[in-house]
Design a binder for these strands. Sequence first.
DNA 1: GTGAAAGCGCTAACAT
DNA 2: ATGTTAGCGCTTTCAC
Lengths: 367, 367
Amino acid sequence: MSVTMREVASVAGVSIKTVSNVINDYPFIKPATRQRVLDAIDELHYQPNLSARSLRLGRSGVIGLIIPDLRNAYFAELADAVMRAAALRGLSVLIEQVGGDRESELAALRGPRSRLLDGVLYSVLALDQDDVGVLEEIDIPMVLLGERIFHGPTDHVTMANVAGAEAATSHLIAAGRRRILALGAHEGEVIGSAGLRLTGYRAALEAAGIEFDDRLVRHAGTWHRRDGAEAMRILLDDGVEFDGMFAFNDALALGAMRVLQEAGFRIPRDVAVIGFDDIDETRYSLPTLSTIAPGKDEIAERAIAMLLERIDDPHRTIAPREVETAFKLVVRESSSGKAAPKIRRRTVAGVRPGAAAPAGGGARWEP
Amino acid sequence: MSVTMREVASVAGVSIKTVSNVINDYPFIKPATRQRVLDAIDELHYQPNLSARSLRLGRSGVIGLIIPDLRNAYFAELADAVMRAAALRGLSVLIEQVGGDRESELAALRGPRSRLLDGVLYSVLALDQDDVGVLEEIDIPMVLLGERIFHGPTDHVTMANVAGAEAATSHLIAAGRRRILALGAHEGEVIGSAGLRLTGYRAALEAAGIEFDDRLVRHAGTWHRRDGAEAMRILLDDGVEFDGMFAFNDALALGAMRVLQEAGFRIPRDVAVIGFDDIDETRYSLPTLSTIAPGKDEIAERAIAMLLERIDDPHRTIAPREVETAFKLVVRESSSGKAAPKIRRRTVAGVRPGAAAPAGGGARWEP
DNA sequence: GTGAAAGCGCTAACAT
DNA sequence: ATGTTAGCGCTTTCAC
């Protein structure tokens, strides 16, 4: 069935060791011998059996990436970045989708599958700080991603959530907005993307001397488009006034924008909007969406580099490291002075950063 | 370093074979013995070494998925569907991104990596019908996806491109459109998504007695949002009139719609639009995008099932099979009579399916 | 420079 | 119902 080194050796008239040497670029082989081996490999279409090699070496060249859901553009783009960074180092990536529930995440971590993997990049979503103990039991090289667990037993790469959220909110404030929604909060969460981004939001308000109004904080359990749309529908029913929106991710922003526009609001004239993640779609939505770019490539790059260091450190001597990658504020139409095409810009007179919200200047349903 | 069966056996006071039996659910073990083994496994955090098992069994439980690009929502959603279908059967999926160029696709197929995989799902993009010979040399169980290669040496799952494209075009015609763009064509391609969808487009025109106008066929090398946007910019510069658009995938449609709306066209009033793929975003764009849903879940399900049959057929006795999955026409705002929110609908009087295009009824830039 | 042989951790005959 | 053992295909000492 499958060609082995033994057959290659016999065809080339050498020993199995020589074949192995050729394959592994061992330098001291007579060119003629090497050529004979290469010819035999070609002739037989020989391909090394990676299971055998990996059994022998204790390395498979495969790392795992545990993420909640590929249909979520952020994770698809993250996976893409991870695979590119891995490919540069000759690694393959086995993706495990876990759908964001505890049981699946635990199963993925402990599952026998991981015994084929040299290491794991684990984008934590369901576990949290209290589960650090669970992670300690996992004795495979691992790097954590995301913002659910800090100071865990291993390396952690995260984006600058608080600072990014603060920048996003400040940007809206600088554009004269005062009643700014925070969309995507999670009840009672402190750590975690939602908690941290809310913290950044509050910090920006405080810095600008704007009073926090909890009616402007809207919850959304998951962060898909439909959740943003739904939250916005409820919000509009509530009749709360607002003139800006910081959505905790781009999908929420896009879903909410959709409902907002359906209801007759103009973006950015009536409501300035900014998201978080910088997914590709934000460049082509109508209007294009301002956002915080978390540096996915840098996250992937750093995470892979650190994971490799751990893999190369069999005695586990490396102490846990925390890395926070740089973010960029990306201003697009949804929040810029320049109004979206076909929508005439209305200058909001007399509004300066730090000034009180103009009475009645907020968003209203205009049927 | 890593715990082996031998250690478990010694702790449990049994032989290594018994441990293996327990792990593999061999039925005839004394409950007490089984429990002792399970306790030992727990205590030592034993996890079977999959490389060893896979070397022994000749099976790894891992299949490969070769796709061009995860950032492309269609492929991300396909990958998601494949991973779900695979998980149901206890398989893991190793994704290999190949970026759509020949060399990478060939490398991925021939690469030593594939010697770890039980089989491969290969979404063909760069190779074509002339490369069938190459595929014959690959002796790993394989199922082809996509529409670049038909009647290859192995199974093939494809969507109903021609029929789907014809349904999409007919739908626009039924809505009274006569000058319908075909966006995303590839120069001279006959087979391949672009070629097949163009064929369907032409068939629909012909069935409705509408003359084919090659100025309405617009090329786009790749099918990302930016390509749709760019093609539309060029098109608008050309001054060609049109009142409908069938984009060969959703991303092209969304990119083009964006430019169209920037230029002052109303969708669907001035231009009715339909895409292809039914990516999630089409449910939330403004307006929501009509499309052809190719049944990704069915594609994934069928492909995995066929791949497994091949894996279970070591003597390669299964003849190549061709499967075409069913599509669904999904009508949303971009092409329905009901105009997008806030845009008053203008009834196009006197237009019936099959009638000639009303003079001057086409799209124009309205500044 | 090349060959012979041991062994990575597991499963499956076969034996008991 | 459980133990013994060979061997999957590879790399790697250790000889020669």
